[in-house]
Design a protein around this nucleic acid. Structure first.
Length: 695
RNA sequence: GGCGAGGUAGCUCAGUUGGUGAGAGCGCAGGAUUCAUAACCCUGAGGUCUCGGGUUCAAAUCCCGAUCUCGCUACCA
């Protein structure tokens, strides 16, 4: 299809923290490169983004810091927006989901779907905090993790051991708001029956996008669709978010994942009154740039919403990137293992392009990749500085030395093979770069550009004008060869500026300045031309395009990363151990009779084996006196079956039996936890007869 | 356990629909050069393409099995 205009979106960053370089590499930088390229092609393109400001984590954070959700999002919205701006991420609009436009847009969207009968109302039981008179999202419920015994596990996840949880699993659950024990209460929500869109999604994605979408994206989608889709609640009980636009819906807001993607639409509305052209005309190409964590929402849920609402176009592509690791470890905001963009900007002022280059050259396009400061140094020093920067500098210095600071003429009669080869290479490179960018292979495109620079260096090496100048007295005709060589080298510089512009816009600007040309020269159609700089035109003195990175800078950054992360972990450890020494306020005093109800006995593990189809379960045979019990225990992550056979343990002998993975567990093994979070058996210090009572 | 994506030179990564002796950058060894940000240019060493089967005249590439890494998901008291 011939597209008349493009709408490019980049994932809305969540406004409860700053952005790190993984965000840039995964989403914003590729999107920006693509957009800058399209602008240079003079195509009608809009680039929209904004802060995602609703959802539970923001309310939690506000609560912890004793402030309001609005204050949190105001702070991070500004920080994130400024980081992007400084990095040269050239959004046409950077909006936010707390804006009035967005509230109206998302409410209207919901209302239309509601009026069309797109939702199903369902009643369910949710946890409710009586003292605060509000429903609690899973994350609002805090308790002890059943896996690692962390006292601060959330109802959806334990951040210490990473287990996925549900509130029912927490030991001693309590409200994060009031510390009171939550009760269950009935509530109703509007569900979007995704299952009704299965057939359509199969047709659209599984059959239609197989060869178009990246394999990681396609595979994820197919996996979800094949597994079968479930109706999904599109509303929540909360005071923070877009109110559900219906009567009798007090205290209900739109689910953050319902309203967030609509944020793309509202941002476009704020940008232009022509917004509907970009969202509702079939000859618009819509592309969502996201990280791999967002695939299901952008490829399945949001398209289904658009389809249900009607009148909207669907994404032509969703080129999701994988994750970027830092110095060999996964990025973790809670461990503060990350390189924050605003910190890079203050540590490396005016060197945005260095980071843009490295993040693109090593972008996680097909798999998770690793970022190291050492690699940044190597790439900057040898590729940017040694190859590209050095070539431009050589061309300019020689022009000043051998050609009076002016663009020399190109003498056709003195043309040699290397001239012709260079001109041909340039035209070929342009096509390769275009093809790579159009198919979202930015890494390839960038290396093609660097290859041009390498060719430039070789071209100088072959023609060696610095030697020709010494032969002028005996062979004056060589001046023409010098002219041709410098002339073409300079035209190559102009081309490099054009090609590099989407990737390294700050550098392209510097080069324009050196060549004394206006920005219009950077129009993509000029690529491949060798008459961009006019003969006899005086050019400026060269400036150093890329400063080298010193070893000490690398060491400083690595050090900074490590010590900061260590500090966070120490802080966490200390708060954690404080929590452990203090008796939990929720555990009420019990009477002796209550304690006596528990039948604790020592036992010996006779056999142990892994439970089929379960990662964490071991099936144990435990001898308690004459009796032998089968107990299923969730300790397989910490112990192999072999090492625990013969171990003395303490067993809750009168716990009601419970089936797990089809095996009836007749008791529970008592475990404690060491400082690393590893489980440890509670066991008598001396051998005791199996079945002995523990009192 | 299920599903998805990966496992290619010391390191970071490319390898389109199976087909000339398997690639790039960095690093390493040697050479050449001095216009240039001690940069650039040339040459070379280095890979049983995770392992094991199979299809084929031909497999890094297709199929089956194993194994490791990452992600989603299930189980977790």
């Amino acid at each position: 299809m011939e597209y008349k205009r493009l709408l490019i979106t980049a994932a809305l960053p969540y406004a409860n923290g700053p952005v790190h370089i993984g965000h840039l590499a995964g989403c914003y930088l590729p999107a920006d490169i693509y957009v800058r390229y399209q602008r240079a092609q003079k195509r009608d393109v809009k680039f929209v983004c904004g802060s995602d400001e609703h959802g539970v984590p923001i309310t939690i954070r506000a609560m912890k810091e004793g402030t309001t959700p609005q204050a949190i999002v105001d702070k991070y919205h500004e920080l994130i927006k400024e980081s992007f701006h400084q990095m040269g991420i050239s959004f046409d609009v950077y909006s936010r989901t707390s804006s009035a436009t967005h509230r109206e847009t998302s409410q209207a969207f919901f209302k239309k779907m509601f009026d069309d009968g797109a939702f199903e109302v369902k009643e369910s039981e949710q946890y409710f905090d009586e003292s605060k008179q509000m429903f609690l999202a899973d994350r609002y419920i805090v308790g002890t993790c059943p896996v690692c015994s962390n006292d601060n596990a959330y109802g959806d996840q334990c951040e210490k051991c990473g287990s996925t949880l549900s509130p029912e699993q927490l030991i001693n659950p309590h409200s994060a708001l009031s510390n009171s024990k939550p009760i269950k209460r009935k509530t109703q929500h509007w569900y979007f029956p995704l299952n009704k869109y299965e057939t359509w999604l199969k047709e659209w994605i599984v059959e239609g996008k197989k060869s178009e979408w990246k394999s990681n994206v396609y595979g994820q989608c197919k996996s979800w669709i094949d597994a079968g889709l479930q109706p999904r609640a599109m509303t929540r009980d909360s005071s923070w978010g877009v109110p559900v636009p219906l009567p009798n819906a007090a205290g209900k807001v739109l689910y953050v994942w319902f309203d967030a993607p609509i944020g793309y639409i509202s941002a476009t509305k704020e940008l232009t009154p022509m917004w509907s052209d970009y969202w509702q005309k079939e000859d618009t190409k819509l592309v969502h740039f996201i990280g791999k964590d967002n695939i299901v929402f952008h490829c399945i849920i949001f398209p289904a919403m658009l389809k249900s609402h009607g009148g909207y176009i669907l994404p032509e592509n969703v080129p999701a990137n994988e994750f970027l690791n830092i110095e060999g470890e996964k990025v973790s905001t809670s461990r503060n293992w990350a390189v924050w963009v605003h910190e890079y900007l203050s540590d490396f002022p005016d060197q945005q392009d260095l980071l843009r280059y490295v993040l693109c050259a090593n972008a996680p396009e097909t798999k998770d990749n690793d970022f190291t400061w050492k690699d940044l140094q190597t790439r900057v020093n040898s590729e940017l500085s040694g190859n590209l920067g050095n070539f431009v500098n050589r061309a300019f210095v020689m022009m000043h030395k051998l050609c009076n600071g002016r663009v020399p003429a190109f003498h056709k009669e003195a043309t040699n093979e290397s001239d012709l080869a260079l001109i041909a290479d340039l035209k070929e490179a342009k096509e390769k770069i275009e093809a790579a960018i159009e198919s979202y292979k930015f890494r390839d495109a960038l290396s093609e550009i660097m290859a041009i620079s390498t060719k430039g260096n070789k071209y100088l090496q072959v023609n060696e004008p610095w030697n020709l100048v010494k032969t002028l007295e005996t062979t004056p005709a060589n001046q023409k060869r010098i002219d041709n060589c410098i002339h073409l080298s300079l035209q190559l510089c102009a081309n490099l500026a054009i090609f590099i512009n989407p990737f390294l816009p700050f550098t392209a600007q510097k080069m324009c300045n050196m060549m004394k040309v206006v920005e219009r020269m950077l129009d993509w159609e000029n690529g491949g031309r060798v008459d961009l700089l006019k003969v006899n035109y005086p050019l400026r003195e060269p400036q150093i395009l890329f400063k080298k990175i010193e070893d000490s800078e690398v060491a400083d950054q690595v050090e900074k990363l490590k010590t900061r992360s260590q500090q966070v972990m120490e802080l966490k450890d200390s708060t954690l151990s404080n929590n452990q020494t203090e008796p939990s306020p929720e555990k009420a005093i019990i009477q002796f009779e209550d304690f006596a109800k528990i039948d604790l006995r020592t036992g010996i593990i006779l056999q142990a084996e892994k439970v089929e189809k379960a990662d964490k379960l071991l099936k144990l045979s435990v001898k308690l006196g004459e009796e032998e019990r089968t107990i299923v225990s969730g300790i397989a992550l910490y112990f192999t079956p072999e090492e625990i056979v013969g171990k003395q343990v303490v067993v809750v002998a009168n716990l009601a039996p419970r089936k797990m993975r089809g095996i009836e567990s007749q008791g529970m093994i008592l475990m404690s936890e060491n400082e690393d979070g590893k489980l440890v058996f509670v066991s008598p210090t001396e051998p005791v007869a199996p079945g002995s009572e523990v009192r």
